[in-house]
Design a protein around this nucleic acid. Structure first.
Lengths: 366, 366
DNA sequence: TGGCGCTCTGAAAGCGCTTACCGACACTCA
DNA sequence: TGAGTGTCGGTAAGCGCTTTCAGAGCGCCA
């Protein structure tokens, strides 16, 4: 029914092995032969049978990208950056990967499910993005699954996630980073957050509210840690209050920011700055402050995180911590394809730079 | 290396045929045997080899979902609804589909590329969402490709798209809907738009601005048609002005709405209502109006389209046309899986209901 | 009790590709 | 000129499943 390799071979007057070699381009083939084969491919409108190819080669063209929330621009940027690296040298030719995004909705179970499904498909690689759930049972289950996948030949790249916890079961293991083929690109959340808070402290702020992301996410914890460390270093007296000035947002969304800011204002009407889990949350914070009649940055400074495209366009333009999402995604894509050599120890930390814009200013004099 | 069917069979003391039958559940197997097999599967942590299975069965577990823009909530809702129908009866068991979303970025070429890639993977089905590009060369190429896929056994569902144009090449064909296995769920864009405009006219509005979506999209045209038809019916005198009061937005985004509204205000400072291509655009329209010091709905009424979640939460709550996205997506998913029988003629129109909320009111008396 | 039908299971033939292995041929170099 | 070397192409053995076909076992009725 459908055209097969053999049909193409017959038409081109060669063996199917030769056709395969032309298509995969990993073996010397005389120019004349190649041309003839390609013409036959074209004339017959041949399209490789992916499953057959995957079965024989023990790996498919699929690359999975796991995201928490497909609607969040953070993931959109990373995912499209990964995809942009997948383009092969033409559609009929082999080597073209199918990058598919799998939306976990932040659910650990769905994450595991997708991983199994991708393993079943013998995916060439999977890129996991976004914050990891901290709950231990899940994270070790996840780590095991990932190592299992890696052992089966699937390349694993963690992008914007903390490195895997050490292998379970072997608790005796020294703190060796376990060369298990899982590559990690982790953002410097602690450092970025530290710099942002330090910036506020330097401006003179002492009462700084913080609306975090979901409490069970690694990212939330890391950003909070950076914040607290900066406080401890530059304003130990403010540290004492930090707990009270921290509100845990239930999600990385606008309304978490809005509600969080209102709650902060209730607890400490005299705060002079608010930091948000990320830019989206920061937007909500700004809205709430404005609704309370506060001006930004004259009355209250606001800081975000991520530097999503809208941060620079917001009014006032948002001071935030820039995460090079596109760059990191592209690198993750190349790593997934094996086009780039993994960093030493298989872990690289991606820098997080402070972007000072209009939403932060010295606190108003009392 | 990895566990195969034969390993499971050996462990359970049966043949691999039996294991396959247990896993696929499409053949009588004695209870005792089934239990033994399932235990073996469990003990060995067996995971089906998807490619092998796909090769033998001539169809894979993959279901593709093509979306214009993964970051647009419209597509997010549809895609997750489709996915929600995919859940099989367990991960190791067969029948669990892998629903993957492919982000075309609205580009016809990428759409075609993804279709080829999905064909290569012998996808079980593909769901295409969102507006179609109207450019003829592409749309017939697309139609051919889709019919090709359908002929190859892949189920095709168009969700929120117009039906395919008639088969190319056979121009002689009578207007028969061509039973080619491509199922379409199309939104009643014309009707919805008609109702919305009629609502404004009934309120007394006569100068109604319109910020459309990208000009080359079917959805844009259909919504505009409904709008014009309502004008023609209830206010022929307003129709004459319609052209001047229409601004073509370059995208379905906020800034298109913002810019569009400013342009409209320039052309007709006395307009009393503005309709937007969709809710996102409407948000931009509202922002622009407010920035010009106009109150909604006292000075200007605003209408959206789609009824995305934020429409009801906006202030003022947005009058809009509700598209049952989740419902349509779920149905598309079932259709893709063959769980639901296609509508007669393979085309169903999904209703679009008017949702009157706070953003529309009678025009201020002169 | 023999024959029939029913339920369950096994043997084996592919599905369409990749790739190890080998042979053919054309050179080059001594 | 014959061995050595390198380039190219064919042969055929799988990859791990699904599924057809046939057969085994068994209860039942006549």
């Amino acid at each position: 029914m459908t055209v097969t390799l053999a049909d193409v071979a017959a038409r081109a007057g060669v063996s199917s092995a030769t056709v395969s070699r032309v298509l995969n381009g990993n073996y010397p083939v005389a120019d004349g032969t190649r041309t003839r084969v390609l013409r036959a491919v074209d004339e017959l409108q041949y399209v490789v049978n992916g499953p057959a190819s995957a079965l024989a080669a023990a790996t498919s063209d699929l690359v999975g990208i796991l995201v928490n929330d497909v609607a969040d621009p953070f993931f959109g940027i990373v995912a499209s950056a990964v995809q942009s690296e997948m383009g092969g040298e033409g559609v009929t030719g082999a080597g073209q990967k199918l990058a598919v995004v799998c939306n976990t909705g932040g659910s650990p179970e769905r994450e595991l499910t997708y991983l199994t499904l991708l393993r079943r498909q013998r995916a060439a690689a999977v890129v996991l993005t976004g914050s990891a759930v901290e709950e231990t049972a899940h994270s070790t289950a996840l780590a095991d699954r990932l190592r299992h996948l890696a052992a089966g030949g699937t390349r694993i790249v963690l992008c914007g996630r903390p490195p895997l916890p050490p292998r379970s079961g072997t608790t005796e293991q020294p703190p060796a980073p376990a060369e298990d083929g899982v590559v990690t690109l982790t953002f410097d959340n602690r450092g970025g957050s530290h710099r942002l808070t330090a910036h506020l402290l330097t401006l003179g702020h002492r009462r700084i509210g913080y609306v975090t992301g979901p409490a069970d996410r690694s990212t939330t914890r890391h950003r909070l840690e950076g914040h607290r460390r900066a406080l401890g270093e530059q304003a130990p007296e403010a540290l004492a209050e930090a707990e009270r000035l921290t509100v845990h947002g239930g999600a990385y969304d606008r309304s978490a920011g809005y509600d969080g800011a209102l709650e902060l204002l209730r607890r400490a009407p005299d705060l002079t700055a608010v930091l948000a889990a990320n830019d989206t949350v920061a937007l909500g914070v700004c809205a709430a402050l404005r609704d309370r009649g506060l001006r930004i940055p004259e009355d209250v400074s606001v800081g975000g995180f991520d530097d999503l495209p809208f941060a620079a366009d917001a009014s006032p333009a948002l001071t935030t911590v820039r995460l090079p999402l596109h760059e990191a995604g592209a690198r993750a894509g190349r790593l997934a394809l094996g086009l780039e050599t993994p960093p030493p120890g298989d872990v690289a930390t991606v820098r997080a730079d402070l972007m000072v814009r209009a939403s932060t200013a010295p606190p108003a004099p009392r």
